[in-house]
Nucleic acid binder design. Structure first.
Lengths: 174, 174, 174, 174
DNA sequence: TATGAATGAGTATTCATTCAT
DNA sequence: GATGAATGAATACTCATTCAT
């Protein structure tokens, strides 16, 4: 991975995340990276290859972020760690996650199964805690968390949402 | 509003909703509508004008859809009607709503205040029902509903989500 | 067929014929025609469409050129008219015919059956004249004529080849 | 001449002959040869240098192929050997000769004088045999042979043309 | 009101070539 | 001798928009 390759990925991430993949031209990416446009194609094959490289990195980051939830040993800790998720996003990586959400709506890019492990673990936790509809509760909490994350990423205002962290902890963990 | 104007709006709605605003060319819209491309510019000024016309119509439809909630007189009915919202979307109007969600993520199109009346009404309802954090509960329910609507619109599978309707009624209305 | 369309075809003919189809860029064609590059694609769909339009015209011209041979009523006249063919090419149409020959060697453009009617007629003539291998003689004469035409078109020097006209007449018609 | 140089020439020959010089990129040649693209420029200066090297080799091969005709001692043998030429092409060398014919039509590559020795020898043979227009007869036979070779190389079907060998022998040698 | 010819800037991608290692 | 990173110009083609009719 040469210096220019990294600069390309950085520039692409920022532009794709803010303007959208389709709305970002390869020429803009190259200019932002301070690199010749042709280099994109030599290193990544085509525009899509640039996105794929970014997504591969995302997969790894997602695993890291979910780890505390997935490796929790008791149900309360599981839910507690899950509630932290939207607030634990490193502001320096907003672009990164914003891109993931944006892609949901662009053609041919959605990978819904990526959240499956989280869902399963939450389901187990709710079950352990004696909830009568653990599956639905898990889905619901997961969606609330995703919705909060979405809003934070879109507007970049984590502080405004902090009360919900307290609220959710109180709601689920007493 | 002439016949050709309507045909343009219909075609634009379908294409913008499915392929995205940026990814849809004026030529495709004109072709789909069976009119000349120039007509778009005569009637709507530019491509953006076409979208704006669609959004104005959306504003009106949104008011109609929210009416049952906003005009409910007791708190339980308010929440009950709100829970119906994601499931009450006319499948013939999926394109319409899909477009709204899609635009959240395209530059310069988000109008968060559109949902304000719903939020206020829910807040009032939770308050009446004696919830200790009515504001957060309202926001939370609203987000859950929006998340469900989002999923239904993206995948077009309202049946899969019906259990959540029952679940939410049970959770909030006993 | 608008004025600019004709200018595009004229420019394309000259450039394709002299530089080759692959070696001629759409931008060169547009520039030579004094027209915007986009117009090529609006009128002819793509670069290949430009060539196809030229070829369709060629088909018609070929029919006109071959007519004297095909409509000859006796064998001698048939061969006599055939021998004239390479020398009857209008110098103003060299580009036109040069393009045909050039395309023989570019991928995906050869249509060998175009000369079939001429071959059949020659075969009939040689047969009538009592030649013992009319098919081969026809093929041979046809190839000689094509070879002469090829040389004339490549170098643009019909005068140098005139003696062969006399020679061929003497050889076949006594 | 290193191993990689040879592999480059082999790859270039095949690609130039089949796809055309202009239509073949240096990157394709390098990939086909399994060497780095830069090596082309180190060894042959530029893309054209690659072609020139191929042409130099062609010159030598042509001499070998024409030798039986040029060194024939009596007129009949001369013509007999000449008639063999199109049928004596080694199928393993089709690419080689196909390239020569293709280049006739690409800019700046035609060397008409290459066939001059053959023409002179044929002229002498026809003269010896008492033909009244030896020069034209020589040119004519040469063209017929070239035309047959052309067709064989283009379509790769020497069998279909074998009857013409018999026919030409019968025609010229009785 | 409506058409369709016309355009100039832009799009992803390919090309021949250079050069540091 | 050989590589592979890097480039700038070119390529076929698309776009939103204008305008004469």
């Amino acid at each position: 991975m040469t210096d220019k390759q990294t600069r390309l990925l950085d520039a692409a991430l920022e532009l794709f995340a803010n303007d959208g993949y389709n709305a970002t031209s390869t020429s803009k990416v190259a200019k932002a990276a301070g690199v010749s446009e042709g280099l994109i194609f030599r290193h990544f094959g085509n525009k899509r290859g640039l996105l794929d490289a970014l997504m591969a990195e995302a997969e790894r980051k997602l695993a890291t972020v979910l780890a505390p939830v997935l490796f929790a040993t008791d149900p309360e800790a599981t839910i507690g760690k899950a509630v932290e998720l939207p607030f634990a996003i490193d502001p320096g990586e907003y672009d990164f996650w914003r891109l993931q959400y944006k892609l949901k709506w662009e053609k041919g890019y959605h990978h819904p199964q990526k959240m499956k492990p989280l869902l399963d673990k939450l389901c187990w936790a709710f079950s352990e805690l004696g909830y009568s509809h653990p599956e639905q509760e898990a889905q619901l909490l997961s969606q609330v968390l995703e919705a909060i994350a979405t809003e934070i990423l879109r507007a970049g205002n984590p502080e405004e949402w902090r009360p919900y962290r307290t609220f959710l902890r109180w709601k689920y963990l007493g």
